[in-house]
Design a protein around this nucleic acid. Structure first.
Lengths: 243, 243
DNA sequence: CTGTTCGTCAGTGTATACAAGTCGCCCTTG
DNA sequence: CAAGGGCGACTTGTATACACTGACGAACAG
């Protein structure tokens, strides 16, 4: 058996089912039955139950009042709202880091990430997307934990958990649109402003730049919905959106 | 079998275990073993697993990396942080209700609740605690759903889920301290200000009054920790705090 | 034709036996 | 004495049989 596979049937089931939900293969509103899933995945009902329970925790499934699960249905408004919530949570993490003070180590790591992101930009519109995407995630993860509170870190991460709420959800793998690439530069300016505000103990500024930063994602998704809805099925994590 | 009992062993186990955690009988940091819990509750391991899974979802347990659960450990900072987060979330709900507009029905229900709370106050410091407590919960629940977004409602409710994060966590059953009773009046003033701000589409005001409103709870818990720590074991939902 | 009741069945709830993994301890060996 | 390996107990993972419940439909009575 492959080592790369998660050790247990339960973990594997979580991964496979998540993939099927995110890809839209199990569409929103569909009820999931333990027996049929067990047959599909070729395991018994027990690890299936385990997996369903974890996916409910993750927010991809809803529990029915009398037992059973349905795939949660997400619409345009839910995407907007979850981006809004991520902005609010990241804003709170930034504000608390400014108000309560951030550890020198954390700030150093954040500065380092920002510098590395700078290095992703070349002449003109050229951007190293893959590197930017990874570093962007690092930045947001570091920000979440910066104020030193485990509870804040945890809840900020949670707000980024849904596939379309993540900070790099729309950081286009091979997106050719020039406006999107340019938006990365202004996003990086916001990264710097957030760090600067935290260093200067400017809580309100840190909070609201972080919120505005999340608006970039909202702007992108609005563009996609209005101008290029075909992209919906193509961008990972957007295929499950109900139209 | 009694009708009042939750239908399934699993549900009953959730209730009993939650009670034992909140009361401090199962202290923070304690590892929970399926077999021993099954023996204690006189059921098999299956519904115990189900219950543990739900309590992890609720935030009272943490999953261990290689299986198993521990009772989550909460300290003073966690109480402060979770109240902060509830304030942030309720602030967001209030702001969005102001910005996006609230339904007339929702606003009417909110007004009605506010009026009923007014009726809880008598001459001098007299307050009908029980009625206030129920109505206060109604107010916060109504506020959470006021902007019409199911996702916002759900996440605000979630932020109030931990026993010491709930809006009426410290609304003292039989608390004799006059200052606490007086604080209820100013809390009610804040209720009115929040509603007023929402009606007037003043998003920023709604958000920050709601945040300040949550500070009442923080103020109370700071008082308890500093001046009267014996109360910790007595107030429901505070017994699980690690000192 | 409509309402009610009973049966069937699909699906989850529960118990339990067995498998497999993890961790600590002890023994062995260098 | 230290390090490494292996043994064993303890705990969770998995399969499966059976119980229970709720929903739907058919049949019968009013």
């Amino acid at each position: 058996m492959k080592v790369s596979e998660a050790a247990t049937h339960g973990r594997r089931a979580v991964i496979e089912l998540r993939e099927k939900i995110v890809s839209g293969e199990l569409p929103g509103g569909m009820r999931l039955f333990e027996v049929s899933l067990a047959e599909t995945l070729e395991i018994s009902r027990t690890p299936v139950r385990e997996a369903l329970s974890r996916l409910a925790e993750e927010g991809l499934l809803d529990r029915l009042p009398n037992g059973g699960f349905v795939v949660r249905r997400f619409g345009y408004e839910d995407v907007i709202d979850s981006i809004e919530l991520r902005g609010v949570m990241e804003g709170t993490a930034a504000r608390l880091a400014a108000e309560r003070g951030a550890s020198p180590e954390g700030l150093a790591r954040l500065h380092e990430i920002v510098e590395k992101i700078d290095a992703c930009f070349g002449e003109g519109d050229a951007v190293d997307f893959d590197a930017y995407s990874d570093l962007n995630e690092d930045f947001h993860r570091e920000l979440a934990g910066l104020c030193g509170s485990e509870m804040i870190r945890r809840e900020v991460e949670r707000a980024s958990a849904l596939p379309f709420a993540s900070p790099s959800a729309f950081l286009p793998n091979r997106m050719e649109i020039a406006a999107f690439r340019r938006s990365l530069r202004s996003a990086q300016e916001q990264h710097k402003a957030i760090v600067n505000a935290i260093v200067g103990r400017e809580g309100a500024r840190a909070e609201f730049v972080a919120r505005e930063h999340a608006r970039t994602a909202r702007h992108n998704i609005e563009y996609i919905f209005n101008k290029d809805p075909d992209l919906l099925a193509k961008i990972p994590g957007l295929a499950l959106i109900h139209r």
